[in-house]
């Protein structure tokens, strides 16, 4: 078909109004929900972030004031500490640091476990055990971590005592410079279950004769992984990585359960979600700031979500 013909066909095509109306009718409930619960709040926040707020009541237009105040708030970004890399660095850098550690760790760990379990007899049970972490409510994970790192009763400190490192025993979640890493470890445990499950099903989808063929071609385990398995599970990696990033961006319950609304002593492991919560629901209510922080979160998450949605 020539370009001209294609154009003609599209331009002159009779629109089937009957059909269009039917489609619209079916889309209406979904679109309504989407509008009320997704687009609406987003638009509301964008507009609201340019206004002054008295508790939950919108006041005068203040331009970028909410934005500049938020971005210079040391609870959001503490530039001095950030440059010296000492905690607290503010919720935004801490949240990003969390992401940088959490995503590669949980992805690699999930892949390694999936590979390990692939040919194992009790793989169903092992997989269920690892996946249990992901099904557990995150608040519970936070409480569990609190317990794990407890100086007296905690499993982790007990372990240190057993291996003869009594000197290291401490309340890990109260150590300003270490606490966030301890929490990241807990988050990784959660996300590993998820990435392992995705990788497991991706591995199960690989035709075993491909690996056998590679063996006959002379490939050892490492080459088989590098040349066959990895390229074939790569699409899953994109999903795992992005879902992990979004998960960390939205993280809240673990941190809240482990460190309360302040996010640990002196906010050392506060994250964006926690700042939104504090700004909106603790006295004094700073609704404008809450909106700004939520929008910052959204700015990171939206492109990621869009990438996932457009993958085929």
């Amino acid at each position: 078909m020539s370009i001209q013909e294609t154009l003609d066909a599209n331009v002159d095509a009779d629109v089937d109004w009957e059909k269009a109306r039917a489609i619209l009718v079916f889309l209406l409930p979904g679109l309504t929900l989407f509008g009320v619960f997704s687009v609406g709040p987003m638009a509301y926040s964008v507009v609201g972030s340019f206004f002054a707020w008295d508790a939950f009541e919108m006041g005068a237009f203040v331009g970028l004031q909410n934005w500049s105040e938020t971005l210079t708030d040391p609870l959001i970004i503490n530039w001095d500490n950030l440059l010296a890399f000492t905690f607290p660095m503010g919720a935004l850098p801490q949240n990003l640091l969390w992401m940088v550690l959490h995503v590669p760790l949980s992805t690699v760990l999930g892949l390694v476990l999936a590979l390990l379990f692939a040919d194992l007899r009790g793989k169903r049970i092992l997989r269920s055990l690892v996946f249990l972490g992901f099904t557990t409510p995150t608040v519970v994970i936070g409480l569990v971590l609190l317990f794990v790192y407890d100086p007296q009763a905690g499993v982790f400190n007990e372990l240190l005592r057993v291996v003869g490192m009594e000197g290291q025993v401490r309340n890990w979640l109260q150590e300003p410079q270490i606490a966030i890493y301890c929490l990241v470890a807990g988050g990784v445990w959660v996300q590993t279950g998820f990435s392992m499950l995705l990788y497991s099903s991706a591995l199960a989808g690989i035709d075993p004769s491909l690996l056998e063929s590679a063996r006959i071609d002379g490939a050892g385990p490492f080459r088989r992984f590098k040349d066959i398995i990895w390229p074939l599970v790569k699409p899953v990696t994109a999903v795992v990585v992005i879902m992990g990033m979004i998960w960390v961006l939205r993280i809240f319950a673990i941190v809240y359960a482990a460190g309360g609304p302040s996010g640990g002593p002196n906010h050392v492991y506060s994250v964006l979600g926690l700042e939104v919560f504090r700004a909106a629901f603790s006295i004094p209510v700073e609704y404008g700031k809450a909106m700004v922080v939520a929008l910052i979160e959204l700015m990171f998450a939206l492109p990621l979500a869009a990438y996932i949605a457009r993958m085929d």
């Binding site: 491909l210 056998e212 063996r215």
Partner: peptide, 30 residues
């Protein structure tokens, strides 16, 4: 001996071509 030590070549019933490689890469792989 492992398959790679036997120097055999096998054509599988379902061909077992590597789906992510081109024909050239497939043939080149061994």
């Amino acid at each position: 001996h492992s398959p790679s030590d036997r120097n055999v070549a096998m054509v599988f019933q379902n061909y077992a071509l590597y789906p992510h490689m081109t024909v050239r890469e497939n043939i080149e792989y061994p």
